[in-house]
Design a protein around this nucleic acid. Structure first.
Lengths: 218, 218
DNA sequence: ATCCATATTCTTACGGTGTAAGAATGCAAG
DNA sequence: CTTGCATTCTTACACCGTAAGAATATGGAT
């Protein structure tokens, strides 16, 4: 129905390519089929174009991934939201997790990606300012910032690519063998369900935040 | 000088292939050149054979990776080492980190790998038994076990593939721009050196262990 | 020693990948 | 319409994992 589709009465059934449309399609493909299945040719198919057309917008697959990382980072809300800096960190943590869960297929790449674009550095800088606002010395906030990041990365990685989801060629161990050979795992199995993830994330986050708050007195 | 090299006076200059030799060469290649550069053909070159010869020992690259994961898991010491279960967890954590740092190039794969081999499940089972020894209820130990794992994964991932080491196509931001646009990162930069990693890991680990101990009273 | 069965290694080939080079097409301004 | 530029496509190359089967080595039976 859009006017641009019928200029010159030629059937131009496709939206023209753009950075935004390519990134959106890339997320759709990565999150639906997984990173291992991601390829420029499949992405082109998703976009209704040829693989090389993508290269007019991104000079390489790595640059496209950088743009996707930026898109994720820009999604994380770090605007100040109250007077308590710990509460501010808590909100950042939830926002970060929400971003990861929004892109479960792509997140494992983000978790191991070098964050040296301006967008990503800007986010890290703003998070560090929250630690500054808490009055932590430079050495302490360097340390606590990293610990905060360790926890977020590990938690989100587990929720998106963890024990139950990562790749492996080994055939699954049968239920019977499981119960007899790995009884301790079998016992906690019922508590490793998706509906428990949020509570677990919260519990760990509170411990980490408590550690950060305690570091204030140093 | 070994006797098998000169049977029949033919120059048989190469050790025969074996699971162990292939896994060792795979670690050497992955840790030296990184996972992105890892290929069966390069591995074959490292071994002095043709790529397809590897397939006599491992039915696929994924199976080889599984074997490498098992090798890493078997490296982690979980033998009981005293009466305090928290101290036991602490030792497991240090052992886990040592394993990760021993294979910095391979660890990022391990971090996102599905752990469903018997060796890996055996390790997880033994770690869970430590939580049982602490007297935690099944629901609580399921949660605390995961939090423990989140922290270890995130910390080791950062030390092996973190901010400074992951892949990215973006050209690095210049020092000048860094100082003026990302002053908070620039301030903590001097405290992001490898020699600080161990102290940071320890600090975060103690916080997590404190949370685990606190969960005992529930 | 010879023969054979088996284990080990290599050769060749196929369909996939990222992407370099340049040709074809579309479009907006003169 | 022509010209120039932005956009898209075609073709091609080197590399990847690995299927299929040929070549070779090895160790036991005769």
């Amino acid at each position: 129905m859009s006017e641009r589709k019928r200029i010159g009465t030629k059937r131009k059934v496709r939206e023209p390519l753009s950075h935004e449309r390519i990134v959106a399609a890339a997320f759709a493909l990565a999150d639906r089929r997984g990173l291992a299945a991601f390829s420029t040719r499949l992405l082109a198919e998703e976009l209704g174009c040829e693989a090389m057309s993508i290269y007019h917008y991104f000079p390489s697959k790595a640059h496209l991934f950088d743009a996707m990382v930026d898109c994720c980072m820009a999604d994380i809300a770090v605007a100040p939201s109250g007077d308590d800096w710990i509460e501010h960190l808590r909100r950042i943590a939830y926002s970060y997790r929400a971003m990861a869960l929004k892109h479960p297929g792509f997140y494992p790449l983000l978790a191991v990606h070098r964050l040296n674009t301006r967008v990503a550095l800007g986010l890290l800088d703003r998070v560090l300012k929250v630690f500054e606002a808490g009055g932590l010395s430079v050495a302490v906030r360097a340390q606590q910032f990293r610990i905060f990041g360790y926890y977020l990365t590990g938690a989100c990685l587990d929720e998106t690519a963890g024990y139950a989801k990562g790749p492996s060629a080994a055939e699954p161990v049968s239920g019977d063998e499981f119960a007899s050979n790995f009884p301790s795992i079998a016992a906690v199995g019922p508590f490793f369900q998706p509906q428990d993830h949020l509570k677990t994330f919260e519990a760990g986050l509170e411990v980490v935040l408590q550690g950060i708050r305690a570091s204030q007195r140093r």
